[in-house]
Simulated assay, not measured.
Amino acid sequence: MRISDDIGFGINKSINDKGEKVAFPSVVIERINNKNRSATSFLGGQEDDYSVVIWEENKPQESQSIYIGDAALSEGAIRTWEDDASKNDNLIPIIVTSCAILGDNTDIDLILGLPLDFYSDEVVEDLKKKLKNINKIVKIAGIKGTKRVKINSVSVFPQGVGAYYSIALNLDGHIKNAEFLKASGAIIDIGYRTIDYLVMSKGKKGLKVRNNLSGSEELGIKKIYEKLQNNTEARIGKKISISKIEQAIIWNNGKLEMGMEDIDLKNDYEDICSKHAKDIISFIKFKWQDELDYIKNIGIAGGGSKVLRQYLKESFKNIVFLDEYANTYGYLAYQALSDRRNV
Rank of each mutant, 00 (worst) to 15 (best):
M1C: 07
G8E: 00
G10F: 00
I15W: 06
P25C: 10
P25H: 10
V28E: 01
N33P: 00
S41L: 02
S41V: 01
F42M: 02
N58D: 15
Q61D: 15
Q64V: 13
I66H: 09
I66K: 09
I68W: 09
D84Y: 03
N90Y: 03
L91S: 04
P93Y: 04
P93W: 03
I95V: 13
V96M: 04
T106E: 15
D107R: 10
L110W: 08
D117P: 00
S120A: 06
V124Q: 05
E125Y: 04
D126Y: 09
K130Y: 04
K130W: 05
G142V: 10
G142K: 12
K144N: 15
Q159A: 03
G160I: 04
G162E: 01
Y164G: 02
A168M: 05
N170H: 10
N177H: 05
K182H: 08
A183S: 14
R193Y: 10
I195T: 06
G206I: 02
L207Q: 05
N211V: 06
S216F: 06
E217N: 11
E217D: 07
L219N: 05
K222I: 09
L228P: 06
E233K: 14
E246Q: 15
W251C: 10
N252M: 06
N253D: 15
M258I: 15
D262F: 13
I263W: 05
D268H: 05
D279V: 11
D279P: 01
F283H: 14
N297I: 12
I300N: 03
G302V: 07
E314L: 12
L322I: 07
A326R: 02
A326Y: 03
T328W: 01
Y334D: 00
S338G: 00
